[in-house]
Simulated scan of single mutants.
Amino acid sequence: MTQLFAGIAGRSLDIEALREVFAGQSIAPDFTYRSMDEASLDFLHRTVDNSEVYFIANRKERDEQAECSFRVSGKRPELWDPVTGESRSAEAFKQAGGRTSLPLEFAPYGSLFVVFRQPIGVEVQGEAKRNFAVYSNPQEIHGPWAVSFDPKWGGPANVEFSKLLSWTARPEDGIKYYSGTATYRTSFDLPALQGPHARVALNLGEVEYAAQVRLNGKDLGPLWTKPFRVEITDVVKPAGNVLEIDVANLWPNRIVGDSRLPPERRYTHTNIVYNQDTPLAESGLLGPVQLEVIEAKVR
């Protein structure tokens, strides 16, 4: 250790100085990546028993694709989704020079665990071209949408949205300043997407801030981060599908609305201060809500 850091004695321990020392000792970076458009990824690495566990995070609010390289070989890479808890073996990867590289894709501010634990020969290579499905042929569900708000919090029990837009863009004060959960309902027929055996996803587009999806009475779970997408292959019918989406926003809009009311008519009582000039936060299901074909990973 003394020899390792001798090269930076008397110098500040900045990243470039450490890189020089490690390069001088022929120590390769633990994790590197290449992208076409200046991605910003960060990582953590922990050894757990005989497994190497990497957590990779996208630090930008945009989709990213990157070729990621890990200082690991002789173990099959697995991809673990921290949002859904699902895990699977990577099908696209290369091993060379004591490293494993594989193409990864990230949602805005998204993240992945890459786990190396199952031994394989160092000569084994993944044969696929990518590790993630492709979503294609989007078909929009136009509505109209029947929307139910909670009257206890000032919203209308029933209203129709001919198109999706932020609650803050509506003229009704009960919707503009609403905070809480509202339920969107509509029905649709399944268009001819790509053959009778195509896998189908529902993409909600933009949601402010979280959603719960039900299709034909089946609860498909919460969606609280981008992409707001869920597979519906086993639930969707050729015709007469009933879609329900609960959407919840945050509290500031209701507090801003209450600042316009006399105290006895307010819905909230808090020491948090917002006033009439505080900008409202976009809220609700903004869409577009689309059906998409899930294509298999390209080989």
Results as ranks from 00 to 15, higher is better:
residue 113 F to P: 06
residue 103 P to C: 06
residue 72 V to L: 02
residue 62 R to S: 14
residue 39 A to F: 06
residue 102 L to C: 09
residue 74 G to W: 00
residue 36 M to D: 15
residue 78 E to C: 09
residue 96 A to W: 11
residue 62 R to G: 05
residue 90 A to G: 03
residue 105 E to Y: 09
residue 111 S to N: 13
residue 99 R to L: 07
residue 75 K to D: 00
residue 83 V to T: 11
residue 116 F to Y: 01
residue 109 Y to L: 15
residue 39 A to D: 15
residue 109 Y to W: 13
residue 69 S to E: 03
residue 40 S to E: 14
residue 85 G to T: 03
residue 39 A to H: 08
residue 63 D to A: 08
residue 92 A to Y: 02
residue 50 N to I: 04
residue 114 V to K: 01
residue 101 S to T: 14
residue 57 A to Q: 14
residue 73 S to T: 03
residue 107 A to M: 06
residue 103 P to T: 10
residue 37 D to M: 04
residue 76 R to G: 00
residue 47 T to Q: 13
residue 76 R to P: 00
residue 79 L to W: 08
residue 47 T to R: 15
residue 101 S to E: 06
residue 71 R to V: 07
residue 42 D to Q: 15
residue 78 E to G: 13
residue 57 A to Y: 11
residue 50 N to E: 13
residue 67 E to P: 02
residue 115 V to H: 07
residue 99 R to S: 12
residue 94 K to E: 15
residue 94 K to G: 07
residue 80 W to Q: 12
residue 52 E to F: 08
residue 43 F to Q: 10
residue 96 A to Q: 12
residue 95 Q to D: 12
residue 109 Y to H: 11
residue 72 V to K: 04
residue 38 E to F: 10
residue 44 L to Y: 11
residue 57 A to E: 13
residue 106 F to W: 06
residue 65 Q to I: 06
residue 92 A to W: 02
residue 106 F to D: 01
residue 36 M to I: 09
residue 41 L to M: 10
